[in-house]
Nucleic acid binder design. Structure first.
Lengths: 127, 127
DNA sequence: CGATACGAATTACATTCGTAATCCTTGGGA
DNA sequence: TCCCAAGGATTACGAATGTAATTCGTATCG
């Protein structure tokens, strides 16, 4: 059986975010970092456990506590989600997605600058 | 109360796809068009009904049958899904998403051309 | 004219997800 | 030494979702 990257839910991804931001962390720290969500401490511990079950995070014993760290990387997750959107919504083709963004999304100056840099980078890479 | 565009599930979107492809259609035609999914006819009718409940499709009486047609457009749906990905996964910014694609997805020449056209269009719009 | 078949409407049911509450263990303080 | 509180593990529970089965109404065929 091959290990496919774990798929995580929306709520779970918010927990991952705090670990991607900094790790390892104790559950107490994670709870603190998620104070703004309004989630109950119990809820966050549940999410942590589900992530453990999915092997999206690892827990290293630290005395009577655990230190949690991500196993699934943010990049892996972004890839999964992007590919999912691409396949589900745009028939797997990038161009329609780009066309969609160009027609419907408001791009900030920063976005535009980054896009320009992106294209330049691609140009250079293709020499 | 303002009408927000209905949010549809993954299975439902596959039904929408056949209506976006061509409409109006009878349920029989829709079932036929979804033969490759392996879904039971009952399943497809259930999805149609849920879409009706969400006002994502309309049913126009045609004798003792209905002719179904989409109320939610493919473009609207693509926008919703794109924005959702953007917000959930890329902090709401387009450039990181595109940067991600450029790093991890194979961009065809056509894709790159579109990207360039996108920037050019923006440039012109901003005069 | 009565039974049937087909589409529509309603109901069903297991799983996943969001959101906790409850139970279990054990290190530390009274 | 004994009890408690903080964390971890387990259980709960309603809503949404995937996937149907059951029931209902009626046009049609024998």
């Amino acid at each position: 059986m091959t290990e496919s990257p774990p798929s995580i839910t929306d709520a779970e991804s918010q927990v991952m975010t705090v670990l991607w931001d900094q790790a390892p962390r104790s559950s107490e720290e994670i709870v603190a970092a998620l104070a703004d969500t309004g989630w109950h401490e119990k809820t966050i511990r549940t999410l942590l456990n589900r992530l453990l079950g999915k092997r999206a995070v690892a827990a290293d014993r630290d005395g009577r506590r655990y230190q949690y760290r991500p196993l699934l990387s943010r990049e892996q997750w972004q890839s999964q989600e992007s590919r999912s959107l691409l396949d589900r919504v745009f028939g797997g083709r990038v161009a329609p997605l780009l066309a969609h963004f160009s027609r419907h999304e408001k791009l900030s100056d920063k976005d535009i600058a980054e896009l320009r840099a992106l294209i330049d980078a691609i140009d250079r890479k293709e020499h």
